[in-house]
Design a protein around this nucleic acid. Structure first.
Length: 292
DNA sequence: CCTCGGGCTCTACTTACTTCA
DNA sequence: CTTGAAGTAAGTAGAGCCCGA
């Protein structure tokens, strides 16, 4: 609820070809200013200072060069601050298997500082029911800034960030997963919006063309009428408004277009995308590429 | 070199909880 | 105070990739 769209820069970059309309939408948060970039970079550099050669290569393959953001060496071990406010209770054995670091932290998990701003603490973590934490504004901000830099984290970066935020690495991991999911969802929404507009334009174009076909058929079916009453008709298309005209004098349908159109009777491809706003070019969407 | 199993992370989906109108 | 919708942290399943045996 907190971040919403103001934290999400939605962008649109598309090029609709005739046969293959390629759609590239970008919802990566926009780095609005160099100041902000600098701030993000500082956060990032502060978090990850030393190099880590053995990084997850998939991140690089996915277009995200995490090798540029090395991790600290000491962040391997988490000085887990035990908290009485333990709210995560449904710990799956699978997850424990898969996240040994997080497992240790889970055993002695740090006091997730959201407790600072939501003091209720759910009655002091009394039961074994799944209790949800609310990340603090500061934590969310740092996570957001980090996400703007890199939408994925390698294990060391994750641990370093978790330590900085006093969270468990698993929490950082989950936050990034959910954040990517939200970004993708937003992108899908923008995709749908755009495709809907494309569809509307095509429908309108189709309607117009159907109408013109009917008019042309009507003209063809009454040749003698046209022959006798009208001068020879040459069907052309106005280059400006792309409307078929049966006028023999000029391809342009109006005097205004006649003035604007230097070349006479040039076939103009009808573009249903013409009415759409120009594509906005942004950074490529950084979501990890599908593995293949 | 090939295969296999374990470990890890990912996405997609779901659940449970919180917040707010 | 209740309620429903929206947001979000976290769980789960399945898949792909990497690496060592």
């Amino acid at each position: 609820m907190g971040e919403k769209d103001d934290g999400l820069g939605l962008s649109l970059s598309l090029a609709c070809g005739q046969n293959q309309p390629s759609l590239k939408l970008n919802l990566m948060p926009l780095a609005s200013s160099s100041m902000q970039n600098l701030q993000q970079r500082n956060i990032w550099n502060e978090l990850f200072q030393s190099s880590d050669r053995k990084l997850d290569t998939r991140l690089v393959h996915g277009g995200i060069d995490v090798n540029q953001a090395p991790a600290t060496a000491e962040c391997e071990e988490e000085g887990g601050v035990s908290s009485p406010n333990s709210t995560v209770s449904s710990i799956s054995g699978k997850r424990n298997e898969r996240d040994p670091v997080g497992d240790e932290i889970d055993a002695e998990r740090p006091s997730c500082s959201p407790s600072s701003d939501d003091e209720d603490g759910g009655g002091g973590g009394d039961d074994a029911s799944r209790k949800k934490l609310r990340l603090s504004k500061e934590q969310s901000l740092v996570l957001e800034e980090t996400f703007k830099e890199h939408s994925t984290l390698n294990p060391k970066q994750k641990s370093a960030l978790a330590m900085k935020l006093n969270l468990r690495p698993r929490q950082v991991e989950v936050w990034f997963q959910n954040r990517r999911a939200r970004t993708k969802l937003k992108q899908t929404e923008v995709d749908c919006e755009y495709l809907k507009r494309c569809c509307d334009n095509l429908t309108e174009e189709n309607r117009r063309l159907q109408k013109e076909v009917q008019e042309l058929r009507a003209l063809k079916l009454s040749p003698q009428l046209n022959m006798h009453n009208n001068p020879p008709t040459t069907l052309t298309m106005c280059p400006s408004c792309e409307r078929v005209s049966s006028s023999s004098s000029s391809a342009a349908c109006t005097p205004k277009h006649r003035n604007l159109s230097p070349s006479p009777q040039r076939p103009v491809p009808v573009s249903p995308w013409a009415a759409l706003p120009l594509p906005i070019t942004h950074r490529p969407f950084n979501a990890p590429a599908s593995r293949s």
